[in-house]
């Protein structure tokens, strides 16, 4: 583990426009180290686009700072090298390569030509630890393309672990998972979140309620509400936006 100081993610006045359509409309938010921040909001709220902007995929204006570094305007791979990693709404792993190879590649962005041009001998320590952390040790030699959906998501989280990212941005990591798998993932995030900053985009309200330490609600490209789970659920504007939606916090309140 690195001894680098833990950094804040600080977004201010973030704006992303696609051909005149504003997907993220002046978002400002701060996420501190050790926080497990959930980013929720209806479909099309701009959650994924926000993560795209932070990771350099979508051109944006405003400011995104991680610690002392301004991220906007940097190419994707340079942002990644600052210790910022993400997963995708549909799990994207290297399907033809084994689980082990996927993780080994994720661990290797800093490798020089000398190491790159030789065979991997054995399993690097950080890879072994990540395999163990995400529970994929038993399937490490299987091609990633043959993994079950949930396992692919775990592999992606494992890749972020070997990358040793300080900021993790997870786009719907438990979508399509069974109840046990969700529980498993939540515990994992809690464990690895102690010395990292994690932002989770999620639609699953049960999952959010159990594991979020704080929540930001996005709606139509703006921050609608922010606070603890209880605060956000009590916010009438949030209830209004979610009214009639099946996974609504308002609806969940009834059962709680």
């Amino acid at each position: 583990m690195t001894t680098a100081p833990l950094n804040d993610l600080e977004i201010s006045g973030l704006r992303v426009t696609f051909d005149g359509f504003t997907a993220v409309d002046g978002v400002s938010l701060r996420v501190g180290p050790g926080d497990l921040r959930f980013l929720i909001g209806p479909n099309g709220a701009g959650k994924t686009t926000l993560v795209d902007a932070v990771t350099g995929l979508a051109p944006a204006t405003g400011s995104v700072r991680f610690g002392p570094e301004e991220l906007l305007g940097r190419p994707v791979h340079r942002i990644a090298r600052l210790g910022i990693g993400r997963t995708f709404q549909t799990a994207t792993v290297f399907e033809q390569l084994t689980v082990l190879q996927n993780l080994d590649i994720a661990a290797g962005a800093g490798r020089g030509p000398h190491t790159l041009l030789r065979r991997r001998r054995g399993i690097p320590d950080e890879v072994a630890r990540a395999l163990d952390a995400v529970g994929l040790t038993a399937v490490r030699d299987r091609p990633a393309g043959t993994l079950a959906h949930g396992q692919k998501q775990w592999l992606e989280i494992g890749m972020l672990l070997v990358q040793d990212v300080q900021l993790m941005l997870l786009d719907e990591p438990v979508a399509g998972m069974s109840h046990e798998e969700r529980e498993h993932t939540g515990q994992l995030l809690r464990r690895i979140g102690r010395d990292r900053t994690i932002v989770v985009i999620e639609h699953d309200m049960d999952f959010m309620r159990t594991f979020a330490t704080s929540v930001t609600v996005l709606h139509a490209g703006r921050v609608l509400s922010e606070g603890t789970v209880a605060e956000v659920r009590a916010d009438p504007r949030v209830q209004e936006v979610y009214l009639g939606e099946t996974a609504a916090p308002a609806g969940a309140e009834v059962e709680a």
């Binding site: 190419p75 994707v76 990644a80 990693g85 080994d104 590649i105 290797g108 190491t115 030789r118 990358q163």
Partner: peptide
């Protein structure tokens, strides 16, 4: 080599590789 594995990764998912640095 590790480079050979990386090359396959780039061939199959060039954009994904960027996010690994």
């Amino acid at each position: 080599s590790r480079y050979g594995e990386l090359l396959v990764a780039v061939r199959d998912a060039e954009e994904r590789v960027r996010f690994l640095g």
